[in-house]
Amino acid sequence: MLLGASLLYISTTNRIQTYVKALVIQGCLFLLVSLLYYKHLGLLHTVIISLEVVAVKIVLIPFFLMYTSRKLDIQGDGESSKETYLSVCVAAVVMFICLTMAVTLKKSGSYTDVLSLGISASAVFIGLFIMTTRRRPITHVIGFMVLVNGVFLASLSLASRAAFMVEAGMLLDVLTGGFIVGIFFNNIKSCLVAGA
């Protein structure tokens, strides 16, 4: 539920700093969820996943995002309040549809609980929504992070059946890292500022 709330929080903003804060909150929640899944994951998997969550989702990616936005002097995405309002409405509708679909899928025999399934699907679609509606590439990366977090939650929910899938899902963070390091080292200011 807290993850769901953080998704709505992300939809309300257009400032990079707030986006990053929301991502850190999501990272902390993932750490908590990983520890709660200790029984299903086992000690080794729990340690690996927790370390990855702390290192990548809570520290590295938010740090690089903030550093890059400051270095390139990008404060926000420049959305109007009307657009922000529309984003929240869309996020709420997406969440409602995803939760309804999760209930339907649960009836057809799903292992994951309705809330996890609905929230992870919401995160995937809200991430896609952020990517397609925001202007700047740095916000696109944040949208991709939201999408990846949704996929990560879905893989955590299936930990009891296939713990290795959680670690495979972590590879997506490597891809995100590739993006951000790409911006960081190559300083593609022209692309980022112009929103090409």
Binding site: M131, F144, V151, L172, L175, T176, F179
Partner: peptide, 10 residues
């Protein structure tokens, strides 16, 4: 990278 990463995630 962007389009393919989204594809990979999906």
């Amino acid at each position: 990278l962007f389009v393919c990463s989204v594809g990979i995630a999906l």
